[in-house]
Every structure is written in structure tokens, then in C-alpha cells.
Write a protein that binds this DNA or RNA. Sequence first.
DNA 1: CAAACAATTGAAAATATTTTCATAATGGAT
DNA 2: ATCCATTATGAAAATATTTTCAATTGTTTG
Lengths: 330, 330
Amino acid sequence: MKKVTIYEVAKESNVSLATVSRVINGSTVVKEDTRRRVEEAINKLGYRPNAIAQGLALSRTTTVGLIIPSTSISFSGRVINGLCDVAKIYDYSVYLHTITEGVTDIKEIIDDVIKARVDGVIIYADKDLDDSLKLLEEYNIPMVVMCSQISADNICSVYVDYKKAVCELCDSYLQKGIEDIAILQDHRNDVVSQLMKSGAEEAFEKHGKEYHGYIEVSKDNRSTYKFLKSYFKTHKHQVFVANRDSQAMAALNASQGCGIAVPEDMELVCMNESKYTSSVRPEISSFVVPAYDLGAISMRLMTKMLKDEQVEEKEKHLNALFSPKQTTKE
Amino acid sequence: MKKVTIYEVAKESNVSLATVSRVINGSTVVKEDTRRRVEEAINKLGYRPNAIAQGLALSRTTTVGLIIPSTSISFSGRVINGLCDVAKIYDYSVYLHTITEGVTDIKEIIDDVIKARVDGVIIYADKDLDDSLKLLEEYNIPMVVMCSQISADNICSVYVDYKKAVCELCDSYLQKGIEDIAILQDHRNDVVSQLMKSGAEEAFEKHGKEYHGYIEVSKDNRSTYKFLKSYFKTHKHQVFVANRDSQAMAALNASQGCGIAVPEDMELVCMNESKYTSSVRPEISSFVVPAYDLGAISMRLMTKMLKDEQVEEKEKHLNALFSPKQTTKE
DNA sequence: CAAACAATTGAAAATATTTTCATAATGGAT
DNA sequence: ATCCATTATGAAAATATTTTCAATTGTTTG
């Protein structure tokens, strides 16, 4: 089983390399007759173009690097799906790197995507990654940053407007006179938490009040559950907002042991709907975050940058749609 | 910002290409003095090796193609994490393709990984993919198949022994005289369902009985929930086994409206634990499937094949660990 | 001190493609 | 038949690296 290259095809069909290349790429004109001959040779020999050689000759790999945290898998998973689906449409391939928090050295990943000569990089950056991005900027590699609001010459960003979501949520409660809104914050210090904070603060400020409702917990789910189980014995909130679906689940389960009925005693809101938050009973309210779209739009933006199409907006924000599943408090 | 290649480094440090290459790859011996000179030049010029050119010269890309369905994201996500973590350790990169059932043409994906000249392919095949795999075999591309039990010259497989899991589960109930065990089957006709079937049948046969407890539903979660809601009004089972976590959740929720208490009236068992099945209340029993390990082990096997290490077992099976969360029926 | 050997280094080929520029073939108009 | 304008094709350079084999340098040793 020896390798068959463009040479063998050329010999078999009695034409030059150039002509075979033209047939493969279908761009320039080739006489119908020779095209047929070449195509026959390709089929006969089972020739497959070599993307590596093409990449070298063209200085272009039609490959996009994706760098994404491995936490919150159901979310990342949907992002990846959207991204891959769109990549397929535009004939790009995806070169994947996951980030395991506290383990992965991002510099190494960046080194690798540079070495691999990807045409562009899409990175999910819910934390500050400035240094790492600098290097990619230096190399002038087109970038799409998911989650953060960064934009520059060669950088686009796509993010979910959690600030607006929380702001409107709080506002609607405040208008009904409900002020006791708790927001769960873990210590990841990520962009989403930041946005939730500023959203709440903005809403309260608008109503002439200051916001003080943060509940700080560790990143770990199990211990969050334990903490809340005892916390709820002494604290009752009218509204309880959690960022991740697993946190909302922890809150729901913890509340049940403490005689707090959801939603009658406490409304529970999750910022990221998943098939679980939507299927659990009692049902809990949640924001539907378009994770699939986040990936899909990021990839679409990337293809525009790579094909030198006009990118009308370099910063794109998506809305999280509130989906109340409970009889809203009066 | 012009490209800096091995040429520039060679000129800068007054040596030949060959020597620079030797320094980069650190394999052959280079005089300490020249090595230092070359390294200085590399740093000064900011030289980065070009993996594409290396790939061409070496006919090797240190890249592994991963082909995985986009359904059941939380499961695939963990597989991907394990796989990427191990890939990183052995300095391989991951080239990702997702399969959207009914949409993606697998042939196209295979074409693409061949074109990309990946060194190996890891594919999650919970359905029959024989034709597609044939092509990879022809090209002699090392393969690891996840989920199915295939093995051949250049193919290893890693799968979770669902058959054994279900068989032992049923057996333990039968020993207690419990025979009314229902197994939910959707119409995906996947390998896992097949294995569950044969596991149940084997257990019943062992006890001199025949198994007839399948409940057939559609693939769609929403309609499964609806179906079960009415089904449970007229049917009560002692034990109810669901494959995917979302199906177990549907069953749990459906049961609650029908006056069936879990676990008192009906034990609910899920074949795939997720953070949701493990955090929902009432708690449900589940098998802990080592998805992360599935990915990690597959990748490890692949690295062995690629580095020509001895692969002692070409078929590796993992056990799903039963984690009963309920007072088991007497 | 010369011979023998080991340690370094370099020249050039090889890897599989694209693309530019030049040439050859074709066809229509005169 | 001849010329001009297309249209089609080919030769060779370029892409960035590795590797083989030969040459050079350095080090012992008799």
C-alpha cells in the first residue's frame, strides 16, 4: 500500500503536476477532455490530496484552533457543537485544546496553535487571559474571544449579556417591591460572575438602593450543597439566583431539607438552563443561554475574518432569554 | 512582521540548516557551544518551528483525529476531557469532528481526517459504522474504537461492559425474587441498548426465565416524558432501568405525578450517572460510567500504537460501577 | 608525529503541493 | 494560408522542514 501522490496521477494521465493541481482545486479552466482523464486517474489510483503539503505550499491550513475550558461540560459541549457544525459548512477543521483549570498551562497551548499554523483561534476566555492573547496578536492571528468583551484589530468577541439579564431580572422584582434577592457567587472570579454583580448593582442603584445580597461559596459543588443546607436553616430569601446549573440544583436540593418550598417560599433562578434545570421538579426558572449559537456565531465570525469578508460588528452580544417556570411572586 | 524560518536562524548563528534542526529536536549531539549560539538566535529572532513543514518532511503529524457524536453532551464532554488530557501528556494534538445524527455524513469526515494525514483516529461508534471504518483500515491508519467491540490488526477498542452491568443488576434482583424489571429502550438501536438487552436476557435465562420487560419509546425526551406520564397510570414496575440520564430524569418526573414513590414503590436505575442524576431528589441509583477514563484510555492506547509500544490487550473493557442510592428492595 | 578513531557539521535530496510565467495549441477572422 | 487572440498546458521555483551521507575537525594512541 504505497502512497499515491500528485506525481503518480500526473504520470497516469499524461499531464503535468500543474494540470492535476488545477483539476483538484477546480478553480482554473482545464479542457473537459483532460479533466476527465485526470479524474479517472485519481479514482483509479485512489489519490487523496495531502492537506499538509497544501498547507505548506499555501501557508494556510483551513484549520481553526479552539481553546475551551473543560469545566461546565454541558455548556462547553453545546458551544463545541455549534462551532463544529458551522466549521463544517465553511470547510474548516477544528483543532481542539481543552483547559483544565489549575492544571493546563495556557502558554503551552498558545505555543502549540502557533506551531500548528492554524488560520485562526477561537478562545473561550471567562477569565483574564491578556498575556496569552498578546502573543497571538503579535503573530497577527485572527481571533474570536468568547465570553469576554475584547476587540481590537484582529479580534472579535461574542458574549452573552449576563449583566443585562440580571439587571432586568432584579428590576422586575424591585418594581414589585421584592428586595431580598440573593446571588450565589463562587470564587472563580470569572467574567460571568462579574457581569451578574454589575447587573444587580445597576438595578438596585436605579431604584436608589445598594445591593448587598451576595452569598459566597467555594467552587466545589458538594461543599456548596453542604453549606447551603445549613445556611438555609437560618436564612430565607425571596429570590435566589445561581450561576451554573449544578449550583441551582444544589440550592434546590438543599432547600428541600430546610422546609423552604420552591417556588412558594423562595424563587430559584438559574442563569444557565440545561436539560436538567428544565426537567427537574419542582421546576425552576432559568435563563436560556444560547450556547450553541455562541459557538456557531463565533465560528461564522472567524470564517468572515479569514475570507476577508466585511465584519460589520466586531463585538456581538447574545441575550439570555428568561424562562420563568414558576408562578411569579406578586 | 515577516516570517522567520530555520534559514534565518541558520544565518544568524552561522551554522547550517541541519544543525539548527538538530538543536530544535534535541536528538542528535551538537557541540555545547554551537547549541548555545543557535538557541540565542532562536530567541532573538522569535523563531517558531512550523509543524506543517515538519509534518511534510516526516510524514507524521503528531495529530490524532477524534470523531464523536454530539448527542449526550455531558458524556461526550467527559470523554473529550480525558482524551485531551492524555493527548497533552504525550504531545499529541487533537483534531476534532462531531457527528450530528442524521445530518453529518461520516464519509466526509473520514475523507477529511485522511486528507489531514492524522497519525491515528479515535472514533466513538455506538452504531454500526463498518463501511466507514473499512476505508481507514485500507489506509492502514491506527484506530481506537470507543464503545464497540471491534479489533483487528490496526484497531483497538475500549468499551464499557453494559452487558455485565445489567446482567448482574438483574441477577441480584432475581435472587431476591423480584422479576418485574422494566428496561426503557429508545429507537436509536445503539450498541449500549443492545448490550443492556443481552445482559437482561442472560440473567433471566440463568434463572430459567425469559425476559419481556422492554418499554419502547422514541428518541425524543419530551415525548418520552409525556408517554411515561400516562404509562405509569396503568403500569407499575418494581424496578425501572433507563439508559441515559435524561431518560431517568423523565421517568422520575413522570412517576411523581402518578403516585408512584421512588424508591419505595419503584426503584429507578440509570445506566449513566451524571452530576444531575446524582444530585436530584429523591436520589436515584445509577451506574457510574467512567467516561473520562474511556477517553483517557483510548488516547493512551493510541499513543502506544503510534510509538510502536507493545499493546498487550487490543480490547479493553471498563466496568460501570453500581452506586445504589436507595434502600434496596427486600 | 602520524594514524586511527570519534565527534561535529554541512550539502543536498526528499517530502507533496501550488503558482507564476512562458510556451504551445486552437480557432476564428482576414 | 496567416495572423491574432484565446485557451490550455508545462517547467520550475517556492513552501519549511528532516535526514543521509560525506567531509571536516578534534582527540587519542601507538
